[in-house]
């Protein structure tokens, strides 16, 4: 190979890349929180709600899980305005990520709920707890403990998938990398650096989530 890698030429753009990285982190944080909220509601509705609500949730989950994220994103950003819903790039990115993680976490949390023994629910009811109290303190509590690792992996998958939001010009790390590449033409160097940043972020997120899990579920 005669080509020499020139990482030095990325230096002038460090602030652009850092901003992109921060955007990616915030995007992941917010849509993780919102996505898990959607997933919790979806899973509860599907397990305990009326039949028709369960059917809607199932359709939502299957539609999202069986289509690419990029198509969901394009549908929201390009398709919805035609139906009268205008969204900024950033809002569309948040929304798409939330909807996507929401579907996966619905499925994950539902599996957790189903693993909670029936007897525990009866025990809660016999202690004069209301339906909501049983759901929150007995069912969801145990379900989350069980599915925490699966949910953690899914969060990382969604974080990595977020690179695609650059395609609607949401200004994440990949967008920043594209921008730098278009300026200094050091495509390979920029993308290698960005890839390593994602890798680091993924590893960091994994150990953070593991630590967090230990704190949250420290009992037992």
């Amino acid at each position: 190979m005669t080509y020499k890698l020139q990482f030095a030429e990325l230096l002038p753009y460090w602030d652009v890349l850092l901003q992109g990285l921060i955007f990616t982190i915030i995007l992941t944080l917010v849509s993780t929180a919102a996505g898990i909220a959607v997933g919790t509601a979806g899973a509860s509705l599907r397990t305990f709600g009326p039949k028709w609500a369960g059917a809607i949730v199932t359709t939502y989950v299957e539609l999202i899980r069986n289509t690419p994220f990029i198509v969901q994103l394009f549908f929201i950003f390009f398709g919805l305005p035609a139906a009268g819903v205008m969204l900024s790039e950033t809002t569309a990115a948040f929304l798409a990520m939330t909807i996507n993680l929401g579907a996966y976490s619905t499925e994950i949390i539902r599996a957790g709920i189903q693993a909670v023994p029936k007897g525990h629910v009866d025990a809660g009811v016999s202690l004069a707890m209301t339906k909501w109290e049983v759901l929150r303190h007995i069912i969801l509590n145990q379900a989350f403990r069980k599915i925490y690792p699966a949910l953690s992996s899914q969060i990382i998958i969604v974080m990595l998938g977020s690179a695609v939001v650059s395609q609607i010009s949401a200004q994440d790390l990949t967008y920043a990398a594209n921008f730098v590449a278009s300026r200094n033409f050091r495509n390979f160097e920029v993308y290698l650096l960005a890839a390593l940043a994602y890798l680091l972020l993924a590893m960091l997120t994994r150990s953070l989530l593991r630590g967090l899990g230990r704190v949250i579920f420290k009992a037992k």
Partner: peptide, 23 residues
């Protein structure tokens, strides 16, 4: 670790521009 820990999109870029480096 690398292929599961980086975005598929980045991998596509890296292959696209990386192979070009070899002429």
């Amino acid at each position: 670790e690398f292929f599961q820990g980086t975005p598929l999109l980045m991998q596509l870029f890296l292959f696209f521009f990386g192979i070009a480096l070899f002429g």
